[in-house]
């Protein structure tokens, strides 16, 4: 999922300080699962913003809506009839949802309530960590299912570096060394010999460096 967290309240207030009526829009997908922008968080943000405005002697009218997905044209249509009644939209979706919202409603100011952080999963309740950087050419088949691009602080394709200490990364003792994880798993798989193969220089053109990426599937296009 895409993992995000709420922006500091001050920053959100800064976006909407001159508004009287706002629409806070949550998203039922990733950000609901990571407790950042689902229905519950929409209600909490609405309450917090109302109080912050009240404290300054202003009343803020807030409408709360949570859509199935904000990265989907179809669901964004659901607010077409009401959106014009508001001065601004505060989107609690990831950066993708915020942009889809802004693209769809050209004349409506749309502000992000979240900082979108990474593609990851929940290690346990309340703990999320990154697993993929979307490089566009997956190398997990060569690295025992553990991604050094994401999990090594230097994204070394031929690690570990000299800073690996007792299984931890040199930049943070709470961070496992990705290459230690790879070696441990290669060993468990009885494939330690795979380590001896050099991973060649990577083509990063399918990653961010190559410019914004796009997929067109003609078989699905209408």
């Amino acid at each position: 999922m895409i993992v995000a967290e709420r922006k500091p309240l001050d920053e959100i207030i800064g976006f909407i300080k001159d508004c009287k009526k706002i629409l806070i829009v949550g998203c039922n997908e990733c950000v609901t699962v990571c407790y950042a922008g689902g229905k519950k968080e929409v209600a909490i943000l609405a309450s917090a913003l109302k109080m912050a405005f009240l404290k300054e002697g202003k009343e803020l009218e807030v409408k709360e809506v949570t859509l199935e997905r904000q990265c989907d044209q179809e669901y964004l249509e659901e607010i077409r009839d009401i959106i014009d009644q508001y001065d601004a939209v505060v989107s609690m979706a990831c950066g993708v949802g915020v942009q889809f919202m802004a693209e769809k409603y050209q004349s409506m100011p749309v502000y992000p309530a979240l900082n979108t952080l990474f593609m990851g999963g929940a290690e346990e309740m309340g703990v999320w960590s990154e697993r993929c950087q979307g490089c566009g050419q997956c190398i997990l088949g060569q690295t025992a299912g553990i991604c050094p691009i994401t999990r090594c602080a230097k994204r070394l394709l031929n690690g570990p570096c000299g800073g690996s200490t007792q299984g931890h990364c040199e930049i943070n003792k709470d961070l496992p060394c990705a290459w230690q994880l790879i070696l441990d798993r290669l060993k468990a798989l009885g494939r330690l010999d795979d380590y001896d193969r050099l991973i060649s220089i990577k083509d990063w053109s399918t990653e961010r460096s190559g410019g914004p990426r796009k997929i067109v599937r003609e078989d699905l296009q209408q």
Binding site: A43, S47, A48, K50, M51, L54
Partner: peptide
């Protein structure tokens, strides 16, 4: 008791 209940009391 959820966060929103506490918030609403103050609100």
């Amino acid at each position: 008791v959820d966060v929103i209940h506490l918030m609403e009391a103050f609100q």
